[in-house]
Design a protein around this nucleic acid. Sequence first.
DNA 1: CAGTTTACGTCAGCCTTGTTGACATTCCAA
DNA 2: TTGGAATGTCAACAAGGCTGACGTAAACTG
Lengths: 169, 169
Amino acid sequence: MSDGRAAPVYGGESLLYLTDEQLRQGIEAMFFAYRGFTADPDRILADMHYGRAHHRAIHFINRAPGTTVNNLLSILGVTKQSLNRVLRTLIADGLVESRVGTADRRERHLYLTEAGRALETRLSDAQRARMRAAYREAGPEAVAGFRKVLEAMMDADMRRAYNRLKDGA
Amino acid sequence: MSDGRAAPVYGGESLLYLTDEQLRQGIEAMFFAYRGFTADPDRILADMHYGRAHHRAIHFINRAPGTTVNNLLSILGVTKQSLNRVLRTLIADGLVESRVGTADRRERHLYLTEAGRALETRLSDAQRARMRAAYREAGPEAVAGFRKVLEAMMDADMRRAYNRLKDGA
DNA sequence: CAGTTTACGTCAGCCTTGTTGACATTCCAA
DNA sequence: TTGGAATGTCAACAAGGCTGACGTAAACTG
């Protein structure tokens, strides 16, 4: 590692895109882009007294209605205590509903209420607008590459969670 | 917004990559990938009692040695008070050196010490390793698209900061 | 049926990292 | 030379992560 300058050519194919400098730029691009990615919802959330954690919960509950607390936990990658704090406020504010499971009465299934869906729409409209503008500017081939690199960057279990959501499980 | 299904075709070119569902998947990809992106340095930092904020400071001081607190502030997008706390511990621990400006004695110029550079190398080696693996797996065209979309996703001033660093200013 | 495991909620306490407010120092321009 | 603007520091607070411990209900298992 820290090879300074990577081997420029291998098997006739240029590997210049793997130099430390290129990787460093990719790291910085990721950092700056993620800021933009969260900026619009953050602004909306700041007005109510919610944070990014609430947004994440709302997003994934909307994405997989009826999901259990445990499932949400593994998707978000936080502890149940941490999630619970957020969930408690969302339920108290009437944005999320928690229903006792029918098959397994230990489980709680989570749903957005009408108000919850309204907020979700507002948040994801803002986020999608930026995403759409970026996609349009970059074009379809760039988007395909974008997705490909992001998927390769995920941890194995996150990639599984991602694909499960993608395929609508 | 929230158009459900975007117009499928426009000017002979497919716009299917701009559907809400595609955008939603992009959002989730971004979320999961960012987790992977920070996971390796996070593990290293957890051992010492540092966090992600320390990593960011170290990264950008290494990237632009002699930068002022104010400049670092605008790159990181946090308040000076927040940055100061991190900086204070890094200076106390002998990883960062703060030199009073010669032209303007109000300014502090920041440099990594030998130990600071060592930690920076350790952290960025870990992060680059993942990045390199992802780049290699996705291939050069995908990487170009990845960068293109990320740049389009940045706020204008972040894009400027990004390009300034990229061009080694 | 008794005991164990699983799912969930909650309390308490800690740490990092964001925030605002108050303040010291330094520079610069009227 | 003096008052405002800019740079950076210290203090206090809040959000949201974390661990650990505990309680309850339901499901599973020998």
